Amino acid sequence: MERNVERLLFASRWLMAPMYLGLAGSLLILVWVFLSELGHLVLALPNLTVNDAILSALALIDLSLAANLLLIVILSGYENFISRMDLLDHKDRPDWLGEVDFSGLKLKLVASIVAISSIHLLKVFMDVGSYPPEKIRWMVIIHLVFLLSGVLLALMDWITQHGKTLKKVKPARD
Rank of each mutant, 00 (worst) to 15 (best):
134 E>H: 11
68 N>L: 14
35 L>H: 12
75 L>D: 07
51 N>Q: 14
92 D>L: 12
42 V>Y: 14
33 V>D: 07
139 M>Q: 04
111 A>F: 00
78 Y>G: 00
137 R>C: 10
15 L>N: 00
68 N>W: 12
148 L>D: 01
22 G>K: 02
93 R>E: 10
40 H>R: 14
35 L>T: 13
38 L>W: 08
143 H>R: 04
80 N>S: 09
127 D>Y: 14
2 E>H: 05
67 A>T: 14
24 A>R: 10
59 A>H: 12
147 L>R: 03
21 L>C: 08
93 R>M: 10
87 L>S: 04
4 N>S: 09
111 A>S: 10
88 L>K: 13
29 I>C: 05
140 V>I: 03
133 P>H: 00
7 R>V: 02
113 I>V: 15
148 L>H: 03
1 M>V: 08
137 R>I: 10
161 Q>G: 09
160 T>Y: 09
145 V>F: 06
25 G>S: 08
98 G>K: 02
39 G>T: 13
80 N>A: 01
77 G>C: 04
75 L>C: 02
109 L>G: 12
42 V>F: 13
122 L>G: 06
173 R>K: 10
132 P>D: 15
92 D>E: 08
122 L>H: 03
123 K>L: 01
121 L>K: 07
121 L>S: 05
121 L>G: 12
159 I>G: 07
16 M>V: 04
17 A>I: 07
39 G>R: 15
70 L>S: 01
96 W>D: 02
127 D>S: 15
53 A>E: 09
102 F>G: 14
23 L>V: 01
20 Y>S: 01
102 F>S: 15
86 D>E: 14
72 I>A: 08
167 K>Q: 04
165 T>W: 02
2 E>A: 05
10 F>A: 12
78 Y>V: 08
79 E>R: 13
58 L>F: 09
71 L>P: 05
72 I>Y: 03
173 R>I: 08
63 L>E: 08
72 I>H: 06
162 H>A: 09
12 S>K: 10
16 M>G: 00
30 L>F: 12
71 L>D: 03
142 I>S: 11
115 A>W: 09
168 K>E: 02
138 W>E: 08
142 I>Y: 11
79 E>P: 09
117 S>Y: 07
115 A>H: 04
139 M>E: 12
152 L>R: 15
2 E>V: 03
47 N>T: 11
112 S>Y: 03
54 I>W: 04
82 I>A: 05
76 S>N: 10
8 L>R: 13
46 P>A: 09
